[in-house]
Design a protein around this nucleic acid. Sequence first.
DNA 1: GCAAATTTGTTCGTATGTATT
DNA 2: CAATACATACGAACAAATTTG
Lengths: 268, 268
Amino acid sequence: MSNPMYQRIAEDLRAQIESGTLGSGQQLGTEGELQEHYGASRNTVRDAIKWLTNLGLVETRPGQGTFVVQEIDPFVTTLTEDPQSGLGGGEGTSYLSEVSERNREPSVSPLQVEIQEASGEVAAGLWITTGTVVISRHEKRFIDGTPWSMQTSYYPMELADRGAERLRSPRNIREGTVRYLADALNIRQAGYRDWITVRAPNVAEADFFKLPADGRVAVYVIFRTAFDGTGQAIRLTITVYPADRNQFIIDVGKVPDRYQHDTGSREA
Amino acid sequence: MSNPMYQRIAEDLRAQIESGTLGSGQQLGTEGELQEHYGASRNTVRDAIKWLTNLGLVETRPGQGTFVVQEIDPFVTTLTEDPQSGLGGGEGTSYLSEVSERNREPSVSPLQVEIQEASGEVAAGLWITTGTVVISRHEKRFIDGTPWSMQTSYYPMELADRGAERLRSPRNIREGTVRYLADALNIRQAGYRDWITVRAPNVAEADFFKLPADGRVAVYVIFRTAFDGTGQAIRLTITVYPADRNQFIIDVGKVPDRYQHDTGSREA
DNA sequence: GCAAATTTGTTCGTATGTATT
DNA sequence: CAATACATACGAACAAATTTG
């Protein structure tokens, strides 16, 4: 084969990782050792390691060495409606119960409420024009202490003006905003549409989720627009999830209870 | 600030890209020009460019230069059931119609049928034990001539033995396998569960989708397990989609017709 | 069609800084 | 503090891809 040397080295190491010769968390040789083993210069060895790093197979720790990445036990969020609560997946209280059901420990940051003008993205999701005033309610979520998702919900200001005052308050709406809007304004959520995209994290996201700053690990961005019975958009919820620790499930029709699924191993 | 020089250069260029000073498809200066402009060595400039490449903001073309990436017009697949056809999103014939509805040109590779033993991943998705014999039916899909997704469906061999012979044939089942299984064996698909994950592409995937071999662009892998009325898994469909050109929609409850959505711009 | 010039890709060497043990 | 290991930065040479004359 005529691939460059750094790729050949990377492929050799990759094979060792995927075959299990190099197990999870195990240390690769140091740069010096690999240099000697493959008869390459230090920079070439480093190029090979950078390649593997980009593939998400190894991580380097200054002063320590290079290690095969530990797979994170992913959390699986169900995006379709919970038939019991009628609540969408990942929403409000349903987040807390879904996480604790899996015997994992959920926690959330204090709610952060702001009045803003809708950006293009928000306006498109709410089906309004850019610059319209909206209420944004933002919180960060953790599972077992590690940052897991960031969620921001946007409501047209008009809803608060019409009487849903608590949307403006930086206090949790215990019964959930879906219920609250039904009680306060008789606005009922008839359905929602989730829009799933994947992109590189921005600086704030990489920082919060402790992702490598170079964008190796992508994030899901899920736009959820909720509609009332007339097809009017009443809310946009944008949730950002790091792709290395989150997966999603969608149930359609009649399916057996929950999942015993087990993701395969690392390979192709 | 005390960031390394290559990151400062990268941030400067990034700002120019995100502010629009450097537009889509436009060429950055050559390495030589950037070297002079920033007063750095060639390798340092190259490190900065590599950083931006990892973020998916630029791409380099040997012999030509470095360019701001052109955004691909993404295709949006609806994963929830089509109320008209009763077919799941992205499945069989529904793929062709969904694509042409958007005024884009779908095409598919010849069907490739194999008899295999179920790998761990397949076994888990079909809720059977590893090594059980299954029929795999594989095809590759294109939109407007560019590779868009690869799909493999797995059926327990038992179904063919019980009379669904056409599953073994490398010929399309025009009416769709859902309908065929209903007609041939009176097995009705009562629902399905989609499991969405994101990971780096393997070599074959990167090759087919023409993705950079270093795993910068992730792929979605969607596992769809279809169940009959008794909760028996009758099919597993694994579809791989490059994340740079695919998005998904999930409709729950009553929502307005289709989407006029417009994704925001490039920034954070 | 070919040769030269331009531009990025690969590989080496070397020196110094920073983080961890 | 010293030793070890990775991070950053510079310089240099040649190879490979592309465009230009």
